[in-house]
Each structure stands twice: as C-alpha cells, then as structure tokens.
Design a protein around this nucleic acid. Structure first.
Lengths: 340, 340
DNA sequence: GCCTGGCACTCCGCAAAGGTGAGTGCCAGT
DNA sequence: ACTGGCACTCACCTTTGCGGAGTGCCAGGC
C-alpha cells in the first residue's frame, strides 16, 4: 500500500504546507524536493494518499493539504526528533538559571516555551502531592488563634488561621510543633497527612479538642493542593500568526485559555516525565479546537512527572521543532526544579 | 459655537456609532433620536462638529464617526454616570463574597469585571507596602542554609533561602527569630524593614556576619514588593468583539497584555480610590494602542488606593456603562479586601 | 435669521463577468 | 512502472456596472 516513495511524498507535502501555508501541488513538490520522479508520478501517489485519507483537496483543482490522519502518520513515523544545538541548550539553561523560586521558574518556562515554539505556551504549576514536608510551624497569634504554616520542599508555602475552641498553652503548642515536625519532616504530603492524623490519638484528653482543630487544618493544607489546578499561559500574541479565521479558530482558543480547567484537560495527564504527547486536531478533547494541536510533556525532577507543560497551536505546525522544544524545556525545567 | 443642539447631535452620533458600529448619517440620526429638526439641519451641525474636530468622515459620502476628541467631550460633558440597579449590586456582592483570600478576591474581580463590561479586564494585586507583618519565621534547612519566611496581614507569603557564610547554632536562630518577631509584629512593611536594620547593631560579634546575611534577605523581602508589579488579566475572549482589524488593533493589544509592565503603565497611577480615569485613543501611552481606550480606577479598603484595576477596549465602547461598572467593582473589591 | 425640502454629486460596496493559471485525472507511449 | 501530453476544472483576481446612502449647497418659508 504505502511504499517508501508515497511516504516521502506525504512528508514533503506536510513540510511544504507547514512552511508555505498553501495547498501544495505536484509540480511545486517535485521542484522543491528531490524525489527523482516526475509530477505525473507524484500525482498518482497523491491520489493513493488521498484515497487512504492522509491528504485532502480543499477544492477540485487545488493542491493537497494534510488531514489530521496525515499529520498523525507524519508525527509517528516520518519524523526523527531533532536534538537541539549546543547554543540552543545554553540559551535555555541561562534563561532558566536566573530563577529565584518555583513561581519564577514557571514564569520563565512559559516565556521560554512561547518564544521557542512561537506558539501559545501553557505550564502547569508543580503538584504538591509529590513534594515533601520541609517544615511545619505553629504561630500563636492570640490565646485562641493559631497560624498554621506548611513549607514544602518545592518552596511552596501553605498557611491557615485556625480559631481554637479553647485556649492552648504555649507549652502545648511547642510540644505539638516538635511532634509534628519529627513526624512529618521529609515525608511526602499524603503520607504526612497520614502521620498527622495518627498523632491525634496520642494527645492528652484535656487538649484534645483544640489540637484536633489544628490537626485537621494541617491535614487540609496537606491535601487541599490547589496548586495543581493552577496554570500559566503565555505567548498569546502568537495567535496572530494563527491564520485569519478569527471566529472559528482563535476565538474558541481564547475562550479555552481563560478556563484553567479546560487547559488542564488539554495538557492531559502524564505519568512519565520524558514522554511528549501530541494530539492532533480532532484528537484534542474539545470540539471547538478541532483546528488546533497540543504538544505536551510531563516534567519534574529526576524524571518524575510533577506536572505538565506544553503548547497549543494550529494543526499546521512544525511538529519536529515543536516536539524538540517542548521536550527540551520539560527536561531543563525538571532540572531547575530539583535545584530549588 | 457649540450650542445645545450640536451637543445633542454629538451625543446621538456617539451612542449610535457605539451600538451599530457603523458610520451614522443625518437621516438615520433623525429617525432614531427625537431631535426635533430635519436631516438638513443636522447636516449643518455635523459640518460644524467636523470643523471643530469632534467627528470625522471615513470617506466622502459616508456617515460620521466620532474622533478621540469627540469621545472625550462625550465622556466629560455629555454623560451622567449611571448608577447600578439593585440586582446588579447584589450580583457583584455575591460574586465577591465567596472569596477565601486575597488571591481569590483578585481572581474573582477580573472575572467579574470582564463579564460586566464585556471587555478585557486588568486587576493589579494589592500593594504590600500598606500591609503589616503577621509573622517572621526562620527555618533551619542545613547548618549553612536558612529559609526566611515573611507572612503579612493580607495573607501574602514571601520567602527566601539564604546561604550562610558560617554555621549558626539553633540557639542563635531561636533568639534571632524571637527578636525579629517582637520587633516587627504588626508593623507596616517599610517600618518593619527599618526595625530589622536596627537589630543588626545589637548582635554579638561572633554571629554578626551570618546574621547580617539573614537580615538583609529579610529587608529585601520587606522592600522588594514584587506583588505590586503583578497583574491579572481576564476576558481576552472579548477581543473577538473588537473588530476584524486583527493586525492593527488586536495583535498589539495581545502583545501588551503579555507585558505586565506595560499593563501597569496602562492602568496608570491613582492615589484616589474613588476616581475613575478614562484615557481615549491617543491619550493611551502606547502608540500601537491608538484604537483603544482604558477605563481605570484605584481601589482599596477605606478609600485608600492600594492598587488599580480597569478595562481595556476599543475607543468605540459604551463609556457610561463601563465607567459605572469599573467604579462599582473598585468600590466593592475595596470593601471585600477590608474584610480579609 | 434659522430651518427645511429639493437636487446634483460623490463614492463605497456589491454583484456579475471574464480571463488567468495552477492543479488535476487520464491516456498512450516508452 | 514511469513519463509527457492534453483537456478540463475551478478558485482567484480584475474589471465593469449599478444602486444607495450620504453629503453640500441653494432657494424658499416661517
């Protein structure tokens, strides 16, 4: 069915269409690529490719355009991932190196990704779930008010003010603080929540009610991980290069970009930090975005996927370059996070 | 020069143009408004208004369109600010009431503003400068690494990791922590920074170098108020209603929206929390945005302007409605912040 | 003196018409 | 199995023509 030359033709069509944005015909194709055959032969191959649904004609006498299925084949079999040049790597490093904290890393990543791919970039904040407890602090604000602070290994800080049902002596607070820290230090958040719950049993009956309030606030801080719902978007100005069909491609995308929930669904879930996922056209889980593709990857320190980042762009995009960029940024951001 | 009828004509032109998006002619104007005169008379008035630069003709034999100067006059003299209806007020309240912290208030405000005005909304985060110190925490991470955490009354958390030039004993850290808190608790940030600097003198010579590093990190956290450079943008999907001239009006705006510095400049500075500023077309401090207007207002608890919020939209916008919305949201957000 | 109805004029916007060219499918020949 | 040739199709561009909305100006009326 699909011999090597037909695949070469498909590849050529995708590449030309991506760079020129115009349907590509048999003649121009032969001129620009060294296929070693005449336009007429290419036409036969094209007819076969169209038969199989890899390419399509906008109108009877126009050139061919890749279909989603065509892009899919191109991405899966016709492209070897380009690795970045040394200067490119260096640029990424230096761009991310200046980051002062996790927020800054995320912000820089979005910019970097948007700039490299010239697409709309999306970066999800690192999940707390896999981070560990660095410190738990209890601050007495008044006899019946306590500030509970949780600091994680990724440098994120969660804090809650709790109203105590009855006063707690400083001694009890100090004891509780010490016990909390020994129990949770270095533990992952879910495990830490578990440990904290266990502590409840060991408390003397007199303080039980007050302590229970504190502990439940802390457990909530451990579990209520709002950060994994947060995403940052950048490079929206690149939408300008999207095409001119505002209502049918740009508007729905702008609307989607406002909804973080939608974005998270777009990025999808990845457990493997090194795998780059590509969703093309109709594969994207929103009907309105059928003219867009999503290239995403998990990222995190030591190949563990804490969160996802990626880009959204027209199906007509430079997949090899974009995939390489997303993969590289994911890798470097993971590394940058490990340093924090 | 400008008698009452001419002003009425100008007002009618602005209103019609805003709602229809089309140049308005003398005949339609008379039909839609009760001016009590004939089209011919209106034409004469229009000629005078054009002479004075309040309106312009896209081409000979087209209707008239307001100029920036025309909008200016309209905003300054021809419009009385509409006050909101009770249901509208109630909607705002209930929308903002559910907010759990400052971040949430800001996020809700952006949504609210974008929804009410159907424009792109911008909200600057409240400045820290006027907030007070709730707690300072020092966490020992390793003998030579210390985590400095600052928690403010608005619930904002700043944190820094400092590398110590030499180890610090736990005792010294505990002592320092206690002294820091007694010195700064309840102080406003600038004053707190001052107090911290003063502490440096009282330290024993052996620890001076290490302590100095910690203190300067803290002073920096007090002063380096990055939050007043932070802004949140929402409602970009409303750009779709902007017009179809993508390259000349939407693209530069999208680019501007990416640059927080630019946005802050757009919002401008307000000291008075109750004043709504309107900048029209060329009055906006960016040449590329000459087709846009900015409606902004300061906001904060008790009429004190902690920050600015506003909207950006085409010069052709519903000024009375927008101004009313911005003013109302600013007022309610100020109130919501006071509650936190 | 200001307003009005009438009139000639301008010019945008739309639609129809015609020409051009890129691209195709098919077929006969090598 | 590939190629050159040929007739055909159809989007796109330009040209042309026309209608209509709008204007400016002028002479007449309250």
């Amino acid at each position: 069915m699909l011999d090597d030359r037909k695949l070469a033709v498909l590849r050529a069509i995708v590449e030309d269409y991506v760079s020129t944005r115009e349907p590509v015909g048999s003649k121009t194709l032969v001129e620009r690529h060294t296929l070693g055959v005449s336009p007429a032969t290419v036409r036969n191959d094209m007819a076969a490719l169209e038969e199989d649904g890899f390419i399509a004609q906008p109108h009877t006498s126009a050139g061919r355009v890749p279909t989603d299925k065509g892009y899919r084949l191109f991405v899966d079999r016709l492209t070897s991932v380009r690795s970045l040049t040394t200067p490119e790597r260096r640029a990424i490093s230096s761009f991310l190196d200046g980051a002062v904290d996790v927020d800054d890393v995320v912000q820089r990543s979005v910019r970097l990704l948007a700039q490299m791919t010239r697409q709309v970039a999306i970066v999800q904040y690192p999940t707390l779930t896999r981070s560990t407890v660095r410190h738990v602090e209890l601050v007495v604000m008044s006899p019946t008010r306590l500030l509970v602070v949780l600091i994680t290994s990724t440098g994120r800080v969660e804090q809650r003010v709790v109203e105590l049902p009855e006063p707690m002596s400083d001694l009890v607070v100090a004891d509780l603080r010490a016990r909390l820290n020994t129990a949770t230090l270095g533990e992952r958040l879910p495990e830490a929540a578990q440990r904290v719950s266990e502590l409840a049993v060991t408390v003397s009956p007199t303080d039980r009610r007050a302590v229970a309030v504190v502990l439940s606030a802390l457990v909530e801080a451990f579990s209520d991980d709002r950060s994994d719902e947060r995403v940052l978007v950048g490079g929206t100005a690149n939408l300008a290069r999207f095409g001119d069909d505002f209502d049918h491609s740009i508007r729905p995308l702008l609307e989607a970009l406002e909804e973080h929930v939608v974005l998270l669904k777009l990025l999808g879930e990845t457990n493997d930090a090194s795998a780059v996922t590509v969703r093309i056209g109709a594969e994207v889980p929103y009907e309105e975005l059928s003219a867009t593709s999503v290239v995403a990857s998990g990222y995190g320190p030591e190949g563990e996927a804490l969160a996802t980042l990626g880009i959204v762009g027209p199906t007509r995009m430079d997949y090899p370059g974009t995939i390489a960029a997303v993969r590289a940024v994911a890798r470097y951001v993971g590394r940058a996070l490990a340093d924090e």
